[in-house]
Simulated scan of single mutants.
Amino acid sequence: MKTIKPIEFKASRAWEALDIANMGGTTCRLHWTDKPYHWHINDGEEVFAVMTGMVDMHIRRDGKEEVIRLEQGDIFFAGIGDEHFAEPIGEARILVIEKEGSV
């Protein structure tokens, strides 16, 4: 058993993660970041939950870019093939659940 207090987790570099669990090939990781990720296309489904801070999620749908502001407690789901990137507003801690090794 584990208890994790996201507010206490700080990494030495952006998007570094604390591994929480691997459940039959599905990972649950807590990420700390203060820098944007890069555009990527999911090769698996991903659940992205903002634990602390705010994140602008940039997405592309039908060739058009949109930005969705995620606040603490908000959850974003990206399916296979969804193009997106996350841009924190200051520091953020994000719980990510996805298949092991997913991009």
Rank of each mutant, 00 (worst) to 15 (best):
Lys2His: 09
Phe77Pro: 13
Val50Ser: 06
Ala17Thr: 12
Asn42Met: 04
Asp56Leu: 05
Arg61Val: 01
Met1Gln: 03
Cys28Gln: 01
Glu98Asp: 04
Ala78Trp: 02
Lys10Thr: 08
Leu30Asp: 00
Ile59Pro: 04
Val103Arg: 08
His38Cys: 10
Ile20Cys: 10
Arg13Asp: 09
Asp34Arg: 05
Asp74Thr: 11
Phe76His: 13
Arg29Asp: 09
Ile68Tyr: 01
Lys10Val: 15
Gly81Glu: 13
Ala86Ser: 11
Gly24Phe: 03
His31Tyr: 11
Ala14Gln: 01
Met1Asp: 10
Ile94Leu: 15
His31Met: 13
Met23Lys: 03
Glu65His: 04
Met54Val: 09
Thr26Asp: 00
His58Phe: 06
Gln72Asp: 09
Val67Phe: 03
Glu91Tyr: 05
His84Gly: 07
Gly63Ser: 06
Lys64Leu: 03
Asp19Asn: 12
Val67Gln: 11
Ala49His: 07
Asp56Tyr: 05
Glu45Val: 08
Glu87Trp: 02
Ile20Pro: 01
Glu66His: 10
Gly24Met: 05
Lys5Arg: 15
Thr27Lys: 00
Gly101Arg: 06
Asp19Leu: 15
Ala21Thr: 10
Ile59Thr: 14
Trp39His: 07
Tyr37Pro: 00
Asp43Asn: 14
Met23Val: 13
Arg93Leu: 14
Asp74Lys: 05
Gly73Pro: 04
Ala49Trp: 03
Pro88Leu: 08
Ala21Asp: 14
Lys35Pro: 05
Phe48Met: 12
Ala78Phe: 09
Glu98Leu: 10
Ile41Ser: 11
Gln72Tyr: 01
His40Leu: 11
Val96Ala: 14
His40Thr: 09
Arg61Pro: 07
His58Ala: 09
Val96Ile: 15
Asp43Phe: 04
Met51Cys: 12
Ala78Met: 15
Tyr37Leu: 14
Ile4Asp: 03
Gly90Ala: 13
His40Asp: 08
Ile59Asp: 05
Lys64Ala: 08
Gly24Ser: 08
Glu45Met: 05
Glu91Leu: 10
Ile97Leu: 13
Ala14Thr: 06
Ile68Pro: 02
Glu46Gly: 10
Gly73Thr: 08
Val67Glu: 12
Met54Pro: 00
Val55Ala: 08
Arg93Asn: 07
Gly44Asn: 06
Glu100Gln: 12
Glu8Gly: 05
Arg13Asn: 11
Arg69Trp: 06
Asp43Lys: 10
Glu91Asn: 15
Trp39Val: 08
Pro6Gln: 02
Lys5Gly: 02
Gly25Glu: 01
Gly25Gln: 00
Glu87Cys: 08
Gly44Arg: 02
Arg93Thr: 07
Asp43Val: 14
Lys99Pro: 13
Arg93Gln: 10
Leu95Ile: 15
Lys99Arg: 14
Phe76Val: 12
Met57Trp: 06
Ile4Gly: 03
Met54Asp: 05
Gly24Arg: 00
Trp32Asp: 00
Gly24Thr: 09
Ser12Gly: 14
Ala17Leu: 14
His31Glu: 02
Ser102Asp: 01
Phe77Cys: 13
Lys10Tyr: 05
Thr52Glu: 11
Arg69Cys: 08
Met23Ala: 06
Leu18Cys: 09
Glu46Tyr: 10
Ile68Gly: 04
Arg29Ala: 09
Gly81Phe: 13
Glu46Gln: 12
Gly63Ile: 07
Gly73Tyr: 03
Pro6Ala: 05
Met23Asp: 02
Gly73Gln: 04
Ala49Ile: 15
Thr26Tyr: 01
Pro36Gln: 02
Asn42His: 14
Ala11Leu: 07
